[in-house]
């Protein structure tokens, strides 16, 4: 297949379809995934292609959706459970954190839970406090779970395909603002390895570590920084578990400055973990504190002004990097 234009949404759909074609044990279950085609249309028409026994519409029963996926995975299927919004993850947290995540360990390695929990999060639709959150930290904080968060169309495809071959439960969090993202992709080109970060841009002055939608905001900010003579390396983590810390370390050691950017709230979030780890492991190479640019420690409002104001955007990222770099001159 040659280069073609594709949306993030279509890439996800294709990943599901290709995996289902390849492996007859792959099933999808979730609310509105069948006839409706998915709340964000990712599973559109899959029910026509694969039938209602493999694309299963469920009642509105999140804990049982995830729990059923756990059991199905233990019994030999490869379920993809869909959680319509990551905001509902709290409802499923027992099945996810106490069951899916711990079964391999508690049972002495007898069995794993090879399931994928697909969901989406983030701001961008004025969807309010219960439909706009970035809750990846809950997942990253739970040993036993894997976590993928694609930022690009190619990664939407490859990471989902790879997630469906992994031996352990993978939480796969899409960003609701990326579904219409269009990029040129060649999906037949060799895929980057699972668990490997991508360098989206190289620069001598600082490293910005990020993932999901913020990758695009950081790239925008990096362009503006370049216009000011500041060159940033941009690392897209792609998966938060496994975490490719080697790539982060290598680049932070080269530049001596690091910033982490996440849409999730700042306190005890993914940005906190990344900043702590960079501070510990790259201490001897750092010339400045590691700066976190993250979501405010507040719920998301329905008002668009407050909604966009409560998460990082290109401007805040740009300004923060400028401040970080100008603090060098002051020393």
């Amino acid at each position: 297949m040659a280069l073609q234009e594709m949306t993030y949404r279509d890439a996800l759909r294709k990943a599901l379809a290709d995996s289902m074609t390849e492996n007859p044990d792959v099933i999808i279950l979730g609310e509105e995934v069948g006839r409706y085609g998915g709340a964000y249309a990712v599973t559109k028409d899959l029910i026509k292609e694969f039938g209602p026994e493999r694309v299963i519409d469920t009642p509105i029963s999140e804990p049982a959706i995830v729990g059923a996926a756990v059991g199905a995975a233990m019994a030999g299927l490869r379920p993809v459970a869909e959680l319509m919004y990551v905001d509902f993850i709290g409802m499923t947290m027992d099945q996810l954190a106490n069951q899916a995540a711990k079964i391999r360990y508690m049972f002495g390695g007898q069995i794993g839970v090879p399931m994928v929990l697909r969901t989406q999060g983030g701001t961008g639709r004025s969807a309010g406090a219960q439909h706009s959150q970035s809750l990846e930290a809950y997942v990253m904080h739970t040993p036993g779970l894997r976590l993928a968060m694609p930022a690009t169309v190619a990664d939407a495809y490859h990471l989902l395909r790879q997630a469906l071959t992994k031996p352990d439960p993978v939480v796969f969090i899409e960003h609701k603002a990326l579904y219409t993202l269009k990029e040129m992709v060649d999906l037949d080109a060799p895929a980057p390895d699972w668990g490997k970060a991508a360098i989206r841009r190289q620069g001598r002055d600082l490293v910005i570590v990020t993932y999901s939608r913020q990758v695009h905001y950081v790239m925008e900010a990096a362009k503006k920084l370049a216009a000011e003579g500041i060159e940033a390396t941009v690392i897209d983590l792609r998966t938060l578990s496994p975490l490719d810390f080697d790539t982060i370390r290598t680049h932070v050691e080269k530049t001596g400055r690091a910033m982490v950017v996440s849409e999730g709230v700042m306190t005890a979030g993914v940005a906190a973990e990344l900043a702590a780890r960079i501070s510990e492991e790259c201490f001897d190479f750092l010339e400045d504190p590691v700066i976190r640019v993250a979501g405010e420690d507040i719920p998301i409002s329905v008002s668009t002004a407050l909604e966009t104001g409560s998460v990082p955007g290109p401007q805040l990222i740009f300004e923060s990097a400028m401040k970080l770099l100008s603090s060098r001159e002051a020393v």
Binding site: S126, G128, A129, Q130, H131, P299, S301, V302, S303, L306
Partner: peptide
């Protein structure tokens, strides 16, 4: 005050 919206 615009924080909740229709659903809240």
């Amino acid at each position: 005050h615009g924080k909740g919206g229709s659903m809240h």
